[in-house]
Design a protein around this nucleic acid. Structure first.
Lengths: 125, 125
DNA sequence: CGGTATCCCACGGGATACTG
DNA sequence: CAGTATCCCGTGGGATACCG
């Protein structure tokens, strides 16, 4: 027992497998996709419109990560043209609710944040 | 009023100034720094040890972003050798508590997540 | 409609060296 | 101790084109 990791099982340990999972959910687009899916089942194109600015490529890879981590369920309807639904799993919904509180707090306190940024920038000039 | 942004003031709008703020707090190292500071005031080197794997450069720039956004306060003691304390502001503490719930949920549900990943990977082979 | 494939760039991020 | 400076690389991410 010489070379074990310092604090295993803990996200503060560099080798903890929680880290990539957390990073998927808190990624630039992961946060917004989880938030959008709190509104209910969505199709690919609906998400694309709702999450303003996301490219097809990033939406696709974000959804794949979240699906792989068990946060999102993907349902393919065998029709033409294709119809694919995305929805949160129970775990995904729990994560998404925490994520929503995060960006809601940012939205609510934005004036304070902008004031802090302004003060910081003036201090530095 | 022809070319106004679609949903201003809302993080789902690509021009919302909330986005970069949210991204700082949910960044790879931002999450862990906020979490560590929930334990109380920390010095630079203490954070470096506690947030396993962070480089000096990234810790420095993460702290600068969080300070600029009004989440973290920096206190420089005029002594030799230098002594610098970092602590959460009230806003930072509110953010950090939400962030902590996020990674605590990931840690708690990690077995389920790993199982989901395994099932996903087997489905794809 | 719901993606993949390709190309490409900016930047997050790591390693190392240096400084007040 | 608490950083900054420099160099460098991998990849997150955008644009465009194409496909079942």
């Amino acid at each position: 027992m010489a070379a074990t990791a310092p604090r295993p099982g803990n996200v503060f340990d560099r080798n903890c497998p929680s880290r990539p999972v957390l990073e998927h959910a808190t990624s630039r687009w992961g946060v917004l996709v989880l938030g959008a899916l709190l509104g209910g089942t969505r199709r690919f194109t609906e998400l694309r419109r709702e999450v303003d600015g996301v490219s097809e490529k990033m939406l696709s890879s974000t959804l794949q990560s979240l699906e792989r981590d068990g946060m999102v369920e993907r349902e393919v309807l065998p029709v033409i043209p294709p119809h694919v639904n995305y929805r949160l799993t129970d775990l995904g919904r729990r994560m998404a609710r925490h994520v929503r509180r995060l960006y809601q707090l940012v939205e609510e306190t934005l004036p304070d944040v902008l004031a802090a940024q302004d003060a910081y920038d003036r201090r530095r000039r």
